[in-house]
Design a binder for these strands. Structure first.
Lengths: 196, 196
DNA sequence: TTTTAATTTAATTGC
DNA sequence: GCAATTAAATTAAT
């Protein structure tokens, strides 16, 4: 519950309240600076390392593809639509896989297609040992803080990000299974009400 | 996609391999400390008492659900391994094992679950039209004051709170994407340094 | 088909 | 107000 408040304490008092037309920008006295809008003004202390958020897309660039992430396609592309594949002369394999893909999946939503280009982190396949340690820690602490996550990351040779996501998904799974078992409890308590 | 903290350059030594049994907690060579695993070292704060004003929980109570959070939440079962759960009533067993783990962890997760399960507002699913207007306004003014927010709330049949949170999250998203694009700019300016 | 890694975003907390 | 983080709901790879 973020402490609300109609607070006048806005850092820059960016108020357009008096406009009754919400979507129009007829106001020229807008107090936005570009820096403000871009959030540039706020790191004077130089603490911002500008972490690459999708470092795995780097290898796509090595293929000489367009650097615009939106136009990029996965490096090992099992998923290039035919009409695009034809634009990638060097990729026989891709075309083959692509044809395969389309043979199986005739219809693809535009959205899904877009996601290929947007770039998704390749799915991590955890080893048995990695899972084992993660599960053991999870039993004891399902909300490891950054310190524990970093420690785990180092021990398991994984990015801390992967650890964080793993715990998030693990908690969701735990919750799901708990819900299901609770459902069973209720169902068994009142079978006549719950059948079907 | 929580913006993670500084990406740690990985320390050259990620040697877990020599640990033969990752999962045994009797293994004393494990370097996790209890505090470390439980993440205790990072929260020293005396936390606030729970916030009031959560109108949406009222209807849960109206549904006749038990108000006792213990019966509604998986708090306890969350953290306890099954093979321990069966022994759970046996206090001496717990003493023999890592009772501190569980004692503390129960308390921690109880508190978390208490606030989450009782108090978390059901996720709002905005409609496409709502998003569209919000985005249009955002383009013009990413810091709408209370007047605009109220106006939006009325037009969109949403609480003003939802509007406020939406803009907050939207600003965070914009900032993130800006950071990423800045990273790409820098990276592309010095490709030779970045290609691995 | 099922499980689960990854993504997006509404909500929460603390500062 | 923001950063960081969480849960919820998806998407998609296996």
């Amino acid at each position: 519950m973020a402490g609300r408040s109609l607070c006048s304490a806005d850092p820059a008092s960016h108020n357009l309240q008096n406009k009754s037309s919400l979507g129009e920008n007829k106001n020229t006295s807008c107090s936005f600076s570009i820096e403000s809008i871009l959030g540039l003004e706020q790191k004077k202390d130089g603490t911002q390392p500008a972490k690459p958020h999708r470092p795995w897309v780097d290898k796509w660039n090595d293929l000489g593809e367009d650097c615009n992430p939106c136009l990029r396609i996965p490096a090992i592309s099992y998923a290039i639509p035919l009409f695009h594949a034809s634009n990638y002369p060097d990729a026989e394999e891709r075309v083959l896989k692509c044809e395969n893909y389309f043979a199986v999946n005739e219809r693809l939503s535009y959205k899904r297609e877009l996601s290929w280009y947007r770039g998704r982190r390749p799915r991590t396949a955890f080893t048995r040992n990695q899972i084992e340690l993660l599960e053991n820690v999870f039993r004891v602490n399902s909300y490891p803080g950054i310190d524990v996550r970093e420690e785990l990351a180092q021990k398991l040779d994984l990015d801390e990000d992967r650890i964080q996501i793993w715990f998030q998904n693990r908690r969701a799974k735990m919750k799901r299974s708990h819900r299901e078992s609770q459902f069973l409890v209720v169902k068994n308590a009142f079978p006549q009400n719950m059948i079907k």
